[in-house]
Structure formats: structure tokens, C-alpha cells
């Protein structure tokens, strides 16, 4: 009898725990749905084509986000262009030259810290590194701050992806007398390309929403500017400024910006996953 009771008790505990875990998953999905619903709903309401053609307006006037979106695109592309080569090189060093060495382990450790370090801290770093010596806020400083966020992501994925390339491939190539740099450039990178591309795309998705590091590097600009040496508007900073303001029409613009940003980031992350998936199937 007591064995039956014990059995019953264990089954009840089990059922309750499993129910709670399903409830936790539902709760997570609920908030995801809620946040997306709000952003898409309020964003679509404020969405129109003028967003892409008009400048950020003063309160009370109609306008768009053209200069902010342009600034974001320019800064993100430059940041990726700077961060990616350095990141790939550092990742190659860690995976190919210092894999089982303490130097490699240290770089990996430091890189992982950099990967999760608060972005606002990187913004302050770039402020002291670039803005202060150069004597003013600039789009260029924003680019560097964003590049510091791209860097660890690319280092990490390059490192991971190169280590997935079978050693036999390296040995086969080296045994043909090909110098190591050529092996790396023409064989290993080709094998690791889909993974590295995914990493770069995910890094792009991450920096396109970054606000904190731009607050004290690129600052903001109410007008159209393609001059990287002066302050530059960016979508996240404008969204921040407009959302914190007391004006209704600025709020609407902020939601529209949030909508564009969210859709862009979600599409990019899904696309990045697809790149990795598509290539992985034939490799297996």
C-alpha cells in the first residue's frame, strides 16, 4: 500500500513539474508574441513611405527617418567592413596557430568576455579613445564602437567554424606542398565560409539595434549627413530620443522605426540561420 502511495506521489510530482515546464515555455512565447504584436501593430499604424524619404522632424511637424536610417546603414556597413577582417584574422590565429596553446586559450577567454561585455562600456571606451582626442562626436567614432561589437562575434564564429574543419583536409593540402597561408585562404576559409557568413550576419543584426554605444560616439543629427567626421543620426538613437519625448507624433515615428528595426533584425537572423542550414546538409 505504501509503495503504491509513494508511486502515486512520484507521479504527481512528475506531472506538476512537467506542467510547470510547459507553462514556462508558454510564458516565454507569450511575451515574445506580446512584444512582437505591439511593435508590429503600432509600427504598421505609423508606417508610410515618407519614413524613407523625409528627414527627422522637429516636434509637431510631419517627417520621416531617412537620415537616421541612412546613418545606421552607413555606420553598420563600415563597422562590419572593419570588424570582419580583423575578427577573421584573430579567429584564424586562435584556431590554426594557437589552438592548444595558452595564448590561444587567453584570447578565447578575453574574446568571450568582450562578446558579453555591456555595449555601453564599449561606447565609453571609444569615447575616451576616439571622441576625446579628436575633439568631437563623429560618425567615425560610432563606426569604431560598433566594430568593437562585431569583432568578438566574428572571432568566435571563425574560431568555432575552423575547428570544425577536419584535420585531414589540412594534412592533405599541406602534403601537396601548399604553403599554410594558401591552405588557410583557399581551403579552410572555403570550408568555413557558411559559418563565418552566419556570424557576420548575426553581428550585423546585433549592431543594427545597438543604441548605447552610439549615444556618446556618433551622437545624433537632425539633418541629412554623409560626413563621417561629424555627428551622425542613427535609427536606434533617434528611436530612443523620440520615444523618451512627450510628443505623440514623435512616439509614432519611434514605433515606425522600431518596426523597421525589428523586421530587419528578425529577417536577418532567420536568413543567417538558413545560410548555415543550407550548406550543412550536403556536408553531412
Amino acid at each position: 500500500m505504501s509503495a503504491d502511495l509513494l508511486f502515486l506521489k512520484r507521479r504527481i510530482i512528475n506531472a506538476v513539474a512537467l506542467l510547470l515546464s510547459a507553462a514556462a515555455a508558454l510564458l516565454g512565447l507569450f511575451f515574445l508574441g506580446w512584444i512582437l504584436w505591439t511593435t508590429l501593430g503600432k509600427g504598421l499604424e505609423a508606417f508610410n513611405l515618407a519614413l524613407f524619404t523625409q528627414m527627422t522632424p522637429p516636434p509637431g511637424e510631419a517627417g520621416g527617418l531617412a537620415n537616421a536610417l541612412f546613418g545606421s546603414v552607413v555606420m553598420c556597413l563600415f563597422a562590419v567592413a572593419i570588424g570582419t577582417p580583423i575578427g577573421i584574422a584573430a579567429g584564424t590565429f586562435v584556431a590554426e596557430y594557437a589552438n592548444r596553446h595558452w595564448v590561444g586559450a587567453t584570447i578565447r577567454f578575453v574574446n568571450d568576455i568582450l562578446l558579453s561585455a555591456p555595449s555601453i562600456v564599449l561606447g565609453l571606451f571609444v569615447y575616451t579613445l576616439v571622441v576625446k582626442p579628436m575633439g568631437g562626436f563623429s560618425g567615425f567614432a560610432g563606426v569604431i564602437a560598433l566594430a568593437f561589437i562585431v569583432l568578438p562575434v566574428v572571432v568566435r564564429t571563425t574560431d568555432d567554424m575552423l575547428r570544425l574543419v577536419p584535420t585531414q583536409m589540412r594534412e592533405a593540402a599541406l602534403s601537396l606542398g601548399i604553403p599554410q597561408w594558401k591552405v588557410t585562404m583557399q581551403i579552410l576559409y572555403r570550408a568555413a565560409a557558411p559559418g563565418i557568413t552566419t556570424g557576420v550576419l548575426l553581428a550585423l543584426a546585433r549592431i543594427s539595434g545597438e543604441t548605447a554605444p552610439l549615444l556618446f560616439t556618433a551622437l545624433n543629427n537632425q539633418y541629412w549627413s554623409s560626413d563621417l567626421s561629424g555627428p551622425m543620426a542613427s535609427a536606434p538613437v533617434v528611436i530612443f530620443q523620440y520615444a523618451m519625448s512627450p510628443f505623440e507624433d514623435w512616439h509614432a515615428l519611434a514605433w515606425a522605426g522600431a518596426f523597421i528595426l525589428t523586421v530587419f533584425v528578425l529577417v536577418l537572423s532567420l536568413f543567417a540561420r538558413l545560410v548555415l542550414l543550407r550548406k550543412r546538409v550536403p556536408n553531412d
Binding site: T39, T262, L266
Partner: peptide, 18 residues
Amino acid sequence: IELLAGIPSIIYGMWGLF
């Protein structure tokens, strides 16, 4: 759930505030 991690934090902030 992983996509939820990718949403920029400013969106969480706006959703939180409004």
C-alpha cells in the same frame, strides 16, 4: 525563444514604457 534574444534591447524598452 532564440529570436527573442535577438530583438534589440531598445524594443524591449519601448514596449516596457508604453
